[in-house]
Computed example of a mutant assay.
Amino acid sequence: MSEDWWDVPGNPYAPAQTRGPAVLESPSPSILAPQDGDAPSQPYTAAELLALEATTAALVRLDCGLAASSRAVAAGWINRMAIEEAAASARLNGILIDTADLRLLAWDSLDRAPDPDLAQALPLYDLVRRIAARHPQHLYTPRRLAALNRTRLTRSTAFSLWNGAADDVEAEERWAVLQAALGPDDLTRLRAAPALTGAAGFLAHWHQVRADRSAGAALGRLLAAWWPARQGLVVARRHNLDGATFEGSDTFVSPTHPAFAGGPVLMPSIGFLGHAQEYRPDRQEGWLLAFLNAATRSLARGEVLLRRLRLAEVRLAEALRPKRSTSRGPQVAAFLLAQPVVTSGRLAHALDMSGTAARTLLDGLHSDRLVLEISGRDAYRAYMVE
């Protein structure tokens, strides 16, 4: 891309005052999408406009579905989607792993030593969790973003915000690239576009300034995922979910909990599973449509997961209906929904139960097909609800 990429006539990421006249091309004529206020219209091809409308509707629909869900379902959704996003992001980085293995490893339930690829993907899951727990207002300035990488704030010497970045990047170079990627003028241009168009444009800009090499492509994808919340298209933080106490992975000592904080609802890497050849943010032509199509696939996966968790909530509530005032049935149901991996030991510790009682309870729920056994072991078994 050229240095005057923003000023290319007809560029859908450019601000209204610099776009220039739309050029009609066959067979995909430009269509003028109305903007708020008195700003001039923005040109899109027919396919881009249809995709933008459909994806925006799907994003808002999923956001509203999460807002209407219980705290346990919402926390369980972000926990499970974070694992899938980390696995998909690893694949885009050239690390081929199995999502089920990453789930077990991240939640301290894998019964073998991880292979090198799986070990490389594990920090990506921590990165997704940490970024997901932040407010978007704290992510788009170089100083605040770089502050997340300080050990005294993350409380984990193993954590690196720059996961997947090149090893030969000096601190001064990384700082200069962050300033270029998060420049106020560039962010202002992106804010002039619809939220999802801005997310695609942000990821393209991240690659244009080579921040994918200096700071990591995975971080750029997560910042693009938060862009709709920054723009107000989805809720940035839900007040009724603040202070959720669902425990997180045992693998990391993290200052954040994995409970749903309002975003990001969009998990872009998931949408490129099976379509990795379309992940070309370094190319202007066709990138917006590819991003929107991937977002649609990711949101469809999110809706399916949300429906399954809400159905599981109803079934668990029926199976664990309290028979006396001291029953822990509701707490057990909430814990099973919130955690992507449950063991008898973790359940017993969280709810102050005996190990025998926890094992008996999980075995009964497994017999009733309310939980799935995912470890494949005869002892120290691991379960999940979906």
Rank of each mutant, 00 (worst) to 15 (best):
P184Q: 05
M267G: 06
L148M: 06
A158Q: 11
D98L: 11
R112F: 11
D242S: 09
R150I: 01
A211P: 06
S249K: 14
R112M: 11
P142G: 04
L273E: 10
A192I: 01
A244V: 05
L50Q: 14
R134N: 07
S156W: 04
S298A: 15
L178F: 09
S325V: 10
Y125Q: 11
S327H: 15
V73H: 00
V128K: 15
V332Y: 14
E170P: 01
L311R: 00
R310N: 14
T141Y: 12
A348V: 00
L289Y: 05
R150N: 07
S2V: 04
R71N: 13
P12S: 06
T245S: 12
D115P: 07
T343F: 11
F246K: 04
G262Y: 10
L351F: 04
E303R: 14
D378W: 06
A147F: 05
S109R: 09
R155M: 07
G329R: 14
L105V: 02
M267F: 13
D168Y: 04
G220C: 07
F291D: 09
V60W: 12
A47G: 10
A46Q: 15
R150P: 01
N240M: 03
Q179C: 06
D282L: 03
I83R: 15
S344L: 01
D115W: 10
F252P: 11
G220Q: 09
Y125C: 12
T18D: 13
P255V: 02
H205T: 02
P136A: 09
V314R: 15
R308N: 00
R19Y: 02
P136I: 00
S354G: 12
A294M: 06
A46F: 09
R321A: 03
H366Q: 15
L203I: 03
A294R: 11
A290M: 07
A88L: 09
D36H: 08
P43Q: 08
L96I: 03
P340M: 00
A261Q: 15
T343P: 12
A58Y: 01
L266H: 12
D212P: 02
A338K: 15
S109C: 12
V265P: 10
Q277K: 13
L50D: 11
W287R: 14
P194M: 10
L372M: 11
G345S: 05
F202L: 07
V253H: 15
T296M: 06
G216K: 06
D282S: 13
L104K: 15
D212Y: 02
P330Q: 06
R155E: 07
A119T: 08
L24G: 05
V342M: 06
H366N: 14
V128T: 10
A193G: 08
S298P: 09
D111I: 02
E25I: 04
E386Y: 04
Q137W: 10
G183D: 11
V177N: 05
R61P: 01
G198A: 08
L182N: 10
P142L: 01
G216R: 04
G198P: 04
W107S: 11
R237E: 10
G248E: 03
A204T: 04
R308E: 00
R129Y: 08
S41L: 04
E85C: 10
A16P: 07
A218K: 10
Y383T: 00
S160T: 05
G262W: 03
A290K: 14
V73Q: 00
L105W: 02
T343Q: 14
S254I: 00
A33V: 07
P142H: 07
